[in-house]
């Protein structure tokens, strides 16, 4: 876009705002501007230092996080205490979304690797907001469902592939 017009309409400023950031996350993709402004009021912006633990395995999850800036390492620890990194998440990624609808224990740990700003959406806020604003919350829930369904689909496809790769295990069982 022309920087001249860009300056006049301050689209740059909007792109730095929290609602714009939220609209880039797949779960909130379908929300319009007004609903995004509403969503801005129920999320919590949290600042983390380097190497701070966000949650660890077995904690009862109460919500999801999106990375506004910084980097988050998802890792798990086995019985001997060896850590294996499962993912390194960057700005715009989100994690922990399974805990948004049900209080289940976290199945991995998360920790920051640099100063990080996270945007958290938590179950209690969602439950409270559903009573006041059912329509945007329904959209959010739909988005969450879409993301989780996609992942489930990928999972089952991969499972199929793994089964196809090792037919002898099938016979043994």
């Amino acid at each position: 876009m022309n920087p001249f017009w860009d300056n006049i309409f301050h689209s740059g400023r909007y792109k730095q705002s929290l609602p714009y950031f939220l609209s880039t996350i797949p779960i909130f993709k379908k929300l319009d501007k007004r609903e995004l402004a509403f969503l801005e009021n129920i999320v919590h912006v949290r600042n983390y230092e380097t190497d701070e633990i966000i949650f660890s395995t077995g904690d009862i999850g109460s919500g999801m996080y999106a990375i506004r800036s910084g980097q988050v390492q998802i890792y798990s620890r086995d019985d001997q205490g060896n850590e294996t990194t499962q993912a390194l998440l960057e700005t715009g990624d989100f994690f922990g979304e399974v805990a948004l609808t049900a209080s289940r224990p976290r199945c991995a740990s998360a920790r920051t690797t640099e100063p990080t700003v996270l945007v958290g959406l938590f179950r209690s806020d969602v439950q409270e907001a559903i009573r006041r604003h059912p329509a945007p919350l329904a959209k959010i829930m739909f988005g969450l469902n879409r993301v989780i369904s996609d992942r489930l689909l990928q999972c089952s496809l991969q499972l199929e592939k793994l089964k196809a790769q090792s037919p002898e295990t099938q016979i043994n069982e």
């Binding site: 949290r46 701070e52 949650f55 109460s62 919500g63 209080s103």
Partner: peptide, 10 residues
């Protein structure tokens, strides 16, 4: 603090 935030909120 961040570590207790989820618990306090719940």
């Amino acid at each position: 603090p961040n570590r207790y935030f989820e618990m306090v909120l719940d």
